[in-house]
């Protein structure tokens, strides 16, 4: 990613282009455009951008309970009094907590694994926050674990692995239902989803 600049490009500018180029989805041309935009930006805006970048690295940590990204540990959700402490919803990524919170249908706590088991990429259970989850169960009265990993192959493997580890410790382990998404079409549904949707059908 280190490429040569013409001597006519000012060194600080070349540096900023190189830094932008490291970001995901930013190619050489977008990096240049962003860098030239920075030059035309008012000084205070540039200052605030630089500070925001530093702040996100310095002030954001992982919650020592749920492993979610937070400014103060324990995080907002883990320290909130009205949350139901007997339920833990296990998710893959911090973004999944946002999605579930948006439903306003869940009042329990979360646990973020920060990834999924993917043997071919060399990511095994030891690379996820599974040990932290086991630690959390010690001494806490947890009634239910909800496995909310994605219904993909990796998500399912992770859910099954966690289930196997936790089944001697927690009496009630559930998995999010799998079925048809709102607004979809039966014609395009795959056989696994459709058969699960049939099995999970409900009285109307």
């Amino acid at each position: 990613m280190n490429y040569e600049f013409l001597p006519s490009v000012a060194a600080p500018l070349a540096r900023v282009i190189q830094e932008f180029h490291k970001l995901p989805g930013i190619g050489p041309k977008s990096a240049q455009r962003l860098a030239y935009y920075l030059i035309r930006m008012p000084a205070e805006e540039a200052q605030s951008l630089a500070e925001a970048i530093l702040a996100v690295k310095e002030r954001v940590t992982f919650c020592n309970i749920c492993q979610n990204i937070t400014e103060n540990s324990p995080c907002y959700l883990c320290s909130h009094e009205s949350r139901d402490r007997s339920r833990i919803c296990v998710v893959e990524e911090p973004m999944d907590v946002l999605s579930l919170e948006r439903t306003q249908a869940y009042k329990g706590l979360y646990h973020v694994l920060h990834g999924v088991i993917s043997p071919a990429s060399g990511i095994g259970p030891e690379n996820l926050k599974i040990r932290e989850l086991l630690e959390r169960l010690k001494g806490n009265d947890v009634q239910e674990i909800i496995l909310a990993t994605n219904p993909s192959l990796e998500g399912e493997s992770t859910a099954m692995y966690v289930h196997r580890l936790l089944s001697p410790l927690v009496s009630h382990i559930t998995r999010l239902a799998r079925g048809l998404p709102v607004g979809s079409d039966l014609e395009y549904a795959d056989e696994v989803t459709l058969s699960r949707a049939l099995e999970g059908r409900q009285e109307v």
Partner: peptide
């Protein structure tokens, strides 16, 4: 999908 191999998907030993 022609075959989803669902038994494999739902059993950790087979899946691994």
């Amino acid at each position: 999908v022609m075959e989803g191999f669902r038994v494999v998907r739902e059993d950790l030993d087979r899946l691994s």
